[in-house]
Amino acid sequence: MTDTRPEPPLIADERDTLCGFLDFLRATVVMKATGLSEVDARKPLIPSSPLMTVVGLVNHLRWVEWAWFSNRVDDQPGEPPWAGDDPDAEFRVPAEQSLADVLAGYERECAVSREVLARKDLSATFVHPRLGNVSVRWVLTHMIEETGRHAGHLDLIRELLDGVTGE
């Protein structure tokens, strides 16, 4: 597994530092999912979390990117998969949607998120229906936490699938 992740800057302003860490984690997600078979990408390995598969986690992160950056921060319309009766819908990836498709969708959504962030001041706010006033800075920090947590899940799942380890 070739590591081509962008290293976060060691000396930078707040925006570049935070975005650098998020981009590093996004690239970690892609790296951990790349090279798996379709069977392995859909294999549930955690008995208490059968929906936590590689393809499910990447799809979840794609929709979380959309929900926070496009939908909330940029006020774009649309409904996430979990808006219906199934709160875990984004983890259920149809068989006809390949891992490559899911990874491409995630990378496209990350690119859109970068564009949204580039246009917004970190101190700008919006009203979240459940949380109240939320800043773009909070969303960016939350996405570092969310992506980092799931990158850790992917790291463990990948190790269980084929023994590949690493940061």
Results as ranks from 00 to 15, higher is better:
50 P>M: 08
91 F>D: 09
30 V>D: 04
156 L>D: 06
158 R>L: 09
31 M>N: 04
152 G>I: 09
44 P>Q: 10
89 A>D: 08
23 D>K: 11
98 S>P: 04
108 R>Y: 05
86 D>Y: 03
144 I>K: 11
93 V>A: 07
62 R>V: 01
89 A>G: 08
136 V>F: 15
18 L>W: 04
159 E>K: 05
31 M>K: 08
69 F>C: 04
36 L>R: 09
99 L>Y: 09
3 D>T: 10
16 D>R: 13
126 F>S: 14
21 F>G: 05
33 A>C: 10
59 N>Y: 06
55 V>F: 08
14 E>F: 05
58 V>L: 03
52 M>R: 12
79 E>N: 12
158 R>S: 06
47 P>R: 03
14 E>N: 10
124 A>W: 13
24 F>G: 04
58 V>D: 07
126 F>I: 12
42 R>C: 09
154 L>V: 09
124 A>Y: 13
107 E>K: 01
44 P>L: 06
135 S>C: 07
42 R>T: 06
158 R>H: 11
127 V>W: 03
162 D>F: 09
104 A>N: 08
53 T>K: 00
63 W>L: 09
55 V>T: 03
8 P>W: 02
146 E>N: 01
142 H>N: 02
165 T>H: 10
42 R>H: 11
122 L>S: 13
96 E>K: 14
49 S>F: 08
87 P>I: 11
75 D>K: 14
112 V>P: 01
122 L>T: 11
139 V>L: 10
126 F>Q: 11
109 E>Y: 03
8 P>Q: 08
149 R>S: 05
1 M>W: 13
108 R>K: 14
69 F>L: 10
147 T>F: 00
155 D>P: 03
96 E>C: 06
80 P>H: 04
111 A>F: 02
112 V>N: 12
142 H>T: 02
27 A>M: 02
11 I>S: 15
31 M>E: 12
93 V>N: 02
18 L>E: 02
37 S>E: 09
138 W>C: 08
94 P>I: 12
16 D>H: 14
29 V>G: 00
83 A>H: 08
101 D>K: 11
5 R>T: 13
52 M>S: 13
41 A>D: 06
104 A>F: 08
155 D>Y: 03
32 K>H: 02
60 H>A: 04
94 P>Y: 14
33 A>I: 06
150 H>I: 00
46 I>R: 12
123 S>W: 10
146 E>M: 00
162 D>G: 10
22 L>M: 01
102 V>T: 14
10 L>H: 13
101 D>Y: 12
158 R>W: 11
89 A>E: 09
140 L>N: 07
17 T>P: 08
40 D>I: 01
92 R>L: 03
134 V>H: 10
73 V>H: 00
82 W>E: 15
137 R>E: 00
112 V>E: 14
95 A>E: 14
164 V>C: 05
145 E>G: 07
71 N>I: 06
103 L>W: 10
132 G>L: 01
165 T>N: 11
28 T>N: 12
130 R>Q: 15
148 G>M: 01
6 P>I: 06
162 D>T: 05
79 E>C: 06
41 A>Y: 05
61 L>I: 00
33 A>P: 07
2 T>Q: 13
90 E>M: 13
47 P>W: 05
143 M>L: 15
106 Y>E: 01
24 F>D: 00
8 P>H: 07
